[in-house]
Design a protein around this nucleic acid. Structure first.
Lengths: 187, 187
DNA sequence: ACATAAACATACATTGGTGTATGTATGTAT
DNA sequence: ATACATACATACACCAATGTATGTTTATGT
C-alpha cells in the first residue's frame, strides 16, 4: 500500500504538477483514504519526498543504463545522448518543481535533503568517481560537462513551461552543437 | 495604490517565492487591506501577472542596456555578459516559479499570456529583429545563441534551488567556455 | 454645501487543504 | 479461540487561503 501511495504521488507530480498534488488528490488516485496515507507517512511532505526519490532513481537508472550500453568505449556523443535521455525525460519536470517548492517549505526540504544530496552527488564530478573518471580530471572537460548539464537543465525547464510541447524547436540544434564542440575539443 | 500593490507582490515573489506569495502576505507588505487589492484587481492572479510583468520589464531593460553600452561594435563576449546580466539576475527566479505554476493554473495562465508572449518574442531570433541582426541569419550563430540561453537558464534554475548561494561554483567556468566557443567560431 | 464616484477598510462566507481521533477490518502469534 | 498489532476507513477539527458584501473615508464635480 505504501508503494501504491508513492506511485500515485509520483504520477500526480508528473501529470498535474506539484501545485495540484494534494493529499486528497493522491488518495483519490491511489484508491485509499487519508487514514491510510497518514498511517504510512508521518506527514504529506514525507510522501512527496518518497515520490520524488522514485523519480530521481528512475532518472539515475537511465543515466547508468546509457553508460553501461557503451562501457569503456564511451564517446562524448554517447555521453551527451545518455545525459539528455535522463534530463530530457518529462519526469524531470517533477524534480524541478519540487526542488523549487522546497526552497520555501522547511518540512519538504528536510524530507528531501538526502534525495537532493544523492542526486547532486551523482551529477558532481567531485563526488561521482565514475563521472570523474569519464572526465579524467581535465578542467576543460569539466567545464564542458557543466555547460552541457546546464543547457540540458535549461531545456528541461523550457519543456516544462511550454504547454503541449513534447520538445522544443531547438533541441536537436543544441544537442548537435554540444556534440560538435565536444568532438572539436577532443573530449 | 495599484503600483504599491504590484511592487509588494513583486518583492514578495523575489524574496519568499511564489508559494508564500498570498493575497494576505502581499497586503501586509503593501500596508493595505484586501478590500483595496480587490478594488484594483479582479482577482489575485491578475495582480501576480502584473507583478511578473514588472519583473520581466526589468530584465528586458537590463538586456537592452547591455546592448546599448556597445552599439554596433557589439562583440560576442559582450553579448554573453549582457545576457548573463539579465538571466543571472536573482529576480529571474520569480519568472521561473510563476511560469511553472501557471502550467496548471488556468486563471494565472490567462493573465500571463501577453507577458509570456512578449518575453518569449524578445528571446526568439525569429521575432526579435535586433537579435536577428546580431545573429545575421547564421544558423550556427543561432544554435550557439540557443545553447547559451539554455545554459544560462539552467544556471539560473540552479541558483534558484540552491539555498543561500549567490552564485554557483561553476558559473565563471561555463560563461568563460561559452566565450571561448563563441570566439573560436568567429561569432 | 451637496451629490457622486472612487478608494479604501472591515467583517464575513466559502472552500480546500492538512492532519487528528476514533472505529473497523484484517493478519499474526499464542 | 483470544489477544494484539497492523492497516485501513470514517468523521471531525482546524487553519489558511481567496473572494464577497457592506461600510466608511476621501476625492471630485457641480
Amino acid at each position: 500500500m505504501r508503494a501504491r501511495l508513492i506511485a500515485a504521488a509520483k504520477a500526480s507530480l508528473i501529470e498535474v504538477g506539484y501545485g495540484r498534488t494534494t493529499a486528497v488528490a493522491v488518495c483519490a488516485r491511489a484508491g485509499v483514504t487519508r487514514g491510510a496515507l497518514f498511517h504510512h507517512f508521518q506527514n504529506f511532505s514525507e510522501l512527496l519526498a518518497a515520490a520524488l526519490e522514485e523519480v530521481c532513481l528512475g532518472i539515475s537508472a537511465r543515466l547508468a543504463a546509457a553508460r553501461e550500453r557503451h562501457g569503456p568505449r564511451l564517446r562524448i556523443t554517447d555521453l551527451i545522448d545518455g545525459f539528455w535521455d535522463g534530463i530530457g525525460d518529462p519526469e524531470f519536470k517533477a524534480v524541478i518543481e519540487v526542488w523549487l517548492a522546497a526552497r520555501n517549505d522547511p518540512e519538504l526540504t528536510s524530507g528531501l535533503q538526502p534525495v537532493i544530496r544523492h542526486f547532486a552527488n551523482l551529477a558532481s564530478p567531485k563526488e561521482n568517481t565514475e563521472l570523474a573518471a569519464d572526465l579524467r580530471g581535465n578542467s576543460e572537460a569539466i567545464a564542458f560537462y557543466r555547460l552541457m548539464m546546464e543547457a540540458m537543465i535549461g531545456m528541461a525547464l523550457g519543456k516544462a513551461v511550454t504547454p503541449g510541447s513534447q520538445s522544443l524547436g531547438h533541441e536537436a540544434a543544441v544537442i548537435g552543437l554540444l556534440k560538435d564542440i565536444g568532438i572539436a575539443k577532443g573530449l
